[in-house]
């Protein structure tokens, strides 16, 4: 074996330097190409991954809010990694995002004015604002909504439903309000501490089956299409209002989630 290879190896015309230069050149070109084209792609991917991560976080938070609301757990906390943007708590206020529920027979407002001034339910939200500027991911009224470039989608729906198994059509609407003592905002790793408060429960047994109108008001068209598309699952609509026909009983529960710290 060694004898044979010795015979073949004639290296008089081979320059190690040229080989080295060729290899080095190829490597340098490769690295340059990766830096030039690959790295921006990776950075872009990272930004996308951050938004995806936050969507995931919001769904986990929604699960916690469900535990507070439907399983009557008094307190929850969840660790969040927030990168590529800011996470903030927007507590309910008299802002421009609110819901109204109206009985169209006689135009009665169904949201009690005693607890919610002006018969308007302002949910507030847990909001993630991406560094890229145009992406918002929010946990609003028990739903996870996302706004991107003027449009919006609902990633996870709230628990609203119609039960028409019996003779009467029952509409159940669950509202969740975000409250806090301070305006929290965070980037990096934070622990979101939440506690539940006594819900307000209202139920109406209507004298005759009536159409019920639910309205969602929003400016800047933030989550406009998200709610419109959700309302379409109840009854066809072209704006962020929906009229559900012949409802006999309306049950509404208003939960409040208090943010204790972030």
């Amino acid at each position: 074996m060694t004898k044979k290879s010795k015979k073949i190896h004639k290296e008089s015309g081979v320059s190690e330097t040229i080989g080295y230069i060729i290899l080095f050149g190829i490597m340098t070109t490769g690295i340059a190409l990766v830096t030039l084209y690959g790295y921006p792609v990776l950075l872009n991917e990272q930004a996308n991954a951050n938004v995806k991560n936050m969507e995931r976080n919001m769904i986990a938070l929604q699960s916690d809010v469900k535990s507070l609301n439907f399983k009557n757990v008094p307190y929850r906390e969840n660790t969040l990694q927030i990168s590529g943007g800011v996470f903030k708590v927007e507590k309910f206020s008299t802002d421009t995002k609110y819901f109204k529920v109206i009985n169209e027979t006689g135009n009665y407002q169904l949201i009690p004015a005693a607890s919610f001034p002006g018969n308007e339910f302002h949910p507030g939200q847990l909001l993630f604002i991406s560094e890229k500027g145009d992406i918002l991911v929010g946990l609003q009224n028990g739903a996870v909504v996302k706004r991107e470039q003027g449009g919006s989608t609902m990633l996870s729906e709230p628990r609203w439903f119609i039960d028409s198994s019996g003779s009467d059509k029952i509409l159940v609407l669950i509202f969740t309000q975000i409250d806090s003592d301070a305006d929290y905002a965070k980037s990096g790793i934070g622990i979101l501490q939440m506690s539940s408060e006594q819900p307000v429960e209202v139920s109406y047994l209507l004298s005759s089956a009536s159409p019920i109108r639910i309205e969602y008001h929003d400016t800047e068209s933030d989550y406009f299409s998200a709610w419109r598309n959700y309302f379409n699952t109840f009854s066809a609509t072209t704006d962020s209002t929906v009229t559900i026909p012949s409802v006999k009983k309306v049950i509404m529960k208003f939960y409040k989630v208090k943010i204790l710290g972030l």
Partner: peptide, 29 residues
């Protein structure tokens, strides 16, 4: 030299891939 260069390149690639996609999943709580 080839080996070292390839090694560095691979480790860098791996690092970039991992750092891009690694995240903290709160779901397991």
């Amino acid at each position: 030299i080839e080996g070292v260069a390839a090694g560095v390149l691979m480790i860098t690639t791996a690092y970039l891939v991992v750092s891009t996609t690694v995240m903290f999943t709160p779901g397991d709580s």
